[in-house]
Design a protein around this nucleic acid. Structure first.
Lengths: 152, 152
DNA sequence: CAGTATCCGGTCTGATACTG
DNA sequence: CAGTATCAGACCGGATACTG
């Protein structure tokens, strides 16, 4: 294969990665998911934490619920009136590995000497946990050993 | 902790994840990185594969090289005149786990019954490889065992 | 609180054309 | 090929106000 003219082995319109990018390839979407992963649930909390215009937040929350990444529910504290809250769905939580891998990339390549303000550990052993590739037997695979495989 | 009013444990301005989102939280940036991961190197190949306006592509490639994710070099085939090409730097390649994790998320949650058109395998064993979390001993850690840990 | 409405200025997008 | 130039229109960000 000459490097003169080269296209991706998978066309854009059937590429799952490309589909995912259409969903989460947006600054605000990602920032909202980050906050949600950290337990933020309410409109005004998102708004103040992110300094996001209310109209924009409104639109993004709609998109996120439409796509099933967040679920809008009524939360009722006893004695108080019900308030809406946005909770991560299972589908949304399934994005955690992506966000964690991204955090690590940032730690490694964007930190500029700064020690990471947070990390991830194993609930039981408290060992530090990192994103990696593993084969079917759970053994780690080095990045340079990864090969793309296509379906015919 | 009452769910009434809750903020993220790490402020936005020192959050490494938020920093990463500023870099890659853009549809075109991610699509370009996807193509680059698949071996696309040249301006017109990116342009045609992605149907991205040339001015936009120009800007994004500039941003990506400025940030050190891509490197612009001259490629010279023998007999032909030199042409520019954009290659992934080490920093850019380090994003692979993020893109692979995202691909898997899409396979699991966006596929809608469709079989994934691609996967990743180990170069030697040809076993299927997935993005996962491992502890310091290289053992896989389940998602629900992950805990956030903060620095004081 | 949790939104929707409105407005305005700026940036991005997308299309087309032009240049070395 | 690999871009830059130009341009109209869409969308976004930011501010403010209004409503249940």
């Amino acid at each position: 294969m000459t490097p003169l003219s080269h296209r991706s082995p998978v066309p854009l319109d059937i590429c799952h990665l490309a589909k995912a990018i259409e969903v989460i390839g947006d600054r605000w979407i990602l920032l909202i998911l980050r906050s949600a992963m950290f337990g933020v649930r309410r409109f005004d909390d998102f708004q103040q934490e992110l300094s996001i215009p209310r109209t924009v937040l409104s639109g993004r929350l709609k998109a996120l619920t439409d796509q099933g990444l967040l679920e809008k529910r009524a939360y009722k504290a006893q004695g108080k009136r019900a308030r809406p809250e946005y909770l991560m769905t299972e589908k949304g939580q399934a994005l955690q590995p992506v966000l964690i891998a991204l955090t690590q990339w940032s730690d490694d390549w964007l930190a500029d000497g700064a020690k990471p303000p947070m990390g991830f550990t194993h609930a039981g052993t408290r060992q530090h946990v990192k994103a990696a590739f593993v084969d079917e037997d759970g053994r780690e695979v080095a990045a340079d050993q990864m090969r793309l495989s296509l379906r015919r």
